[in-house]
Nucleic acid binder design. Structure first.
Length: 499
RNA sequence: GCCCCGUUAGUCUAGCGGCCCAGGACGUCACCCUUUCAAGGUGAAGAUCACCGGUUCGAAUCCGGUACGGGGUACCA
């Protein structure tokens, strides 16, 4: 067992960060910064950009990806932005190394140049399909004579370098979650390790980078299991010590199959924009495929750092359950965030909606105290940050948007009775200290008695008049937060609506 | 087709040979609390532990096969 642990996340910058990737990063961080440290080992998490596919590069996606991780609060110890002892952390900048190593393997007879054209490969594949044979490269160039190779080289024919897999025996891929996976070597292809443009394929690049960056544990998606024997053989051929492999489980969409765009958001940004909290996302990632005791549901990142172990991650894929994520998000908002914290998180949405001043979001914002108060009132009713502007609107805006007059008249009540209630309320209001919820409540209950109505029959019209809706936080807190001046105006408005 | 991985309620999971005719959570339903909506509380329904064989005094747990689901099968990662 090594005295230190180094793991890495190596995304290709071809789009936005998928939540499967985000979960992988979290596991890496928990492993390096949590489990490793608890076991008394030095743990490092490194971020490396795998940009060897020049055709699929998307401008800015590496930066976008890092921004997403920062938002989640997941930190890396080394990476393209902060550097580190194993720089560079961008694959394309390491290009020359891969060429050298591929050439070395060729000279040792462990790899070979292949001059087959894409057309020929296509033909071979089609023929195999017709004859129902397992598809794969037919090793056409594996036994080319030295003269043939030289002649083609001299003629300037483009080539790739393929790894020469052993033709017999078996390759064992030890997997931390699954145990040994055994492959028959003759079933494994001679895969391309260096492309004709001189860039390595994933297979060569990961092995070289992981080795040169001293990666001890390779965590990645399960889609790499089938090519893992190649990687094992590559380590062998190069005489390098093998890392420990841990292929993590896949996240499925509710209909089975890889989680994809069809089923709502899959990129981290989608969730951010939908008003999810990083805490809830991380909490959910932990619950998907891992469990402490089968009972605990709420975990903070600190809790996880204290308890997470990579070995306990389940190897079986799990279905992404949006409803449970939503529940967790609400749990975090309703019970685990302080009102001050909630206020700060809700403010950017309020600014965007034009409901509070567009000033920097901090405790010095002119309406910070107001929003803290509202956050206290609405904490239990908010499931997503995106709901805040709507739920807080009637507290922050002077003029209520028009609402249906029928709303003012509860079932089993006549408009005339409602008018009586509102008239009485309008008269009562100037004398009340709204900040004293008890006094307000007592006054309105007395009013109900005097009008020979149930309290609810008095409360409801006042609620609607004050807010323009049938649902709100507790009436008396709500009235205080709306403020006396606006309240009087709104009750007057309701009275005119009823007449 | 071939190779590989997986399989406990609709979903996420606990379980590592007797404590399990299977525990927790989401969702669903009912009731309670209540000035509305939430939040909260209580409770209910829901799993022949994929199936079939075997090992064992005893299996969700170990072994084999089958079925189903998923992944891979590129000069993409």
């Amino acid at each position: 067992m090594t005295d230190h642990i180094r793991v890495r996340f190596a995304p290709s910058p071809t789009g936005s960060l998928h939540i499967g990737g985000a979960r992988l990063v979290m596991y890496n961080v928990l492993f390096a910064h949590g489990q490793a440290k608890r076991e008394g080992r030095d743990g490092k998490f490194v971020l490396r950009i795998e940009d060897t596919d020049r055709k699929r590069l998307i401008e800015g996606s590496a930066e976008n990806l890092m921004e997403g991780l920062r938002w989640l609060g997941l930190k890396w110890d080394e990476g393209p932005d902060i550097g580190g002892p194993y720089a560079p952390y961008v694959q394309s900048e390491r290009k020359h190394r891969y060429g050298e190593i591929a050439e070395q393997l060729v000279s040792e007879g462990k790899a070979y140049r292949c001059f087959c054209t894409p057309e020929r490969l296509q033909e071979v594949r089609e023929q195999q399909q017709r004859e129902k044979l397992p598809p794969g490269y037919d090793r056409h160039c594996r036994n080319l004579s030295a003269e043939d190779v030289q002649a083609k080289l001299d003629a300037g024919e483009p080539y790739v370098i393929r790894f020469a897999m052993p033709l017999e025996g078996e390759t064992i891929v030890p997997d931390l979650l699954r145990g040994d996976i055994v492959y028959q070597n003759d079933k494994i292809d001679d895969l391309v390790i260096l492309k004709s443009d001189g860039f390595p394929t994933y297979h060569l690049a990961v092995v070289v980078d992981d080795h040169e960056m001293d990666i001890t544990h390779v965590t990645r998606g399960p889609e790499w299991i089938p090519t893992a024997p190649l990687h094992v053989q590559l380590y062998k051929a190069l005489g390098w010590e093998m890392p420990i492999f841990a292929h993590m489980p896949l996240i499925l969409n509710p209909n089975g199959g890889k989680l994809s765009k069809r089923h709502g958001g899959v990129s981290l940004n989608d969730f951010r924009e939908a008003g999810y909290l990083p805490e809830a996302l991380l909490n959910y990632f932990a619950l998907l495929g891992w469990s402490l005791d089968g009972k605990t549901e709420i975990y903070s990142m600190d809790d996880l750092l204290q308890h997470f172990t990579l070995e306990k991650v389940s190897p079986s894929p799990s279905t992404f359950d949006r409803a449970k994520l939503d529940w967790l998000n609400a749990q975090w908002i309703n019970h685990h965030l302080t009102t001050e914290d909630l206020a700060l998180r809700v403010m950017p949405w309020l600014i965007e909606a034009g409901m509070i001043a567009a000033a920097p979001v901090d405790t010095n914002h002119p309406q910070y105290a107001t929003v803290v108060g509202l956050s206290g009132l609405l904490k239990d009713r908010i499931h997503f940050l995106t709901e805040a502007p709507d739920l807080m609107s009637y507290f922050l805006i002077d003029d209520l948007p028009d609402y249906d007059t029928d709303l003012l008249v509860p079932k089993k009540m006549e408009a005339a009775d409602v008018l009586k209630v509102l008239d009485a309320a309008a008269e009562l209001l100037p004398r009340l200290d709204l900040d004293s919820h008890e006094q307000t409540e007592a006054a309105f209950r007395a009013l109900a008695e005097q009008l020979e109505m149930k309290p609810g029959q008095v409360f409801m019209p006042i609620r609607v008049a004050a807010t323009g809706r049938a649902q709100s936080p507790g009436l008396f807190e709500t009235l205080a937060a709306v403020g006396k001046e606006r309240l009087i105006a709104r009750i007057d408005l309701a009275r005119t609506k009823l007449r």
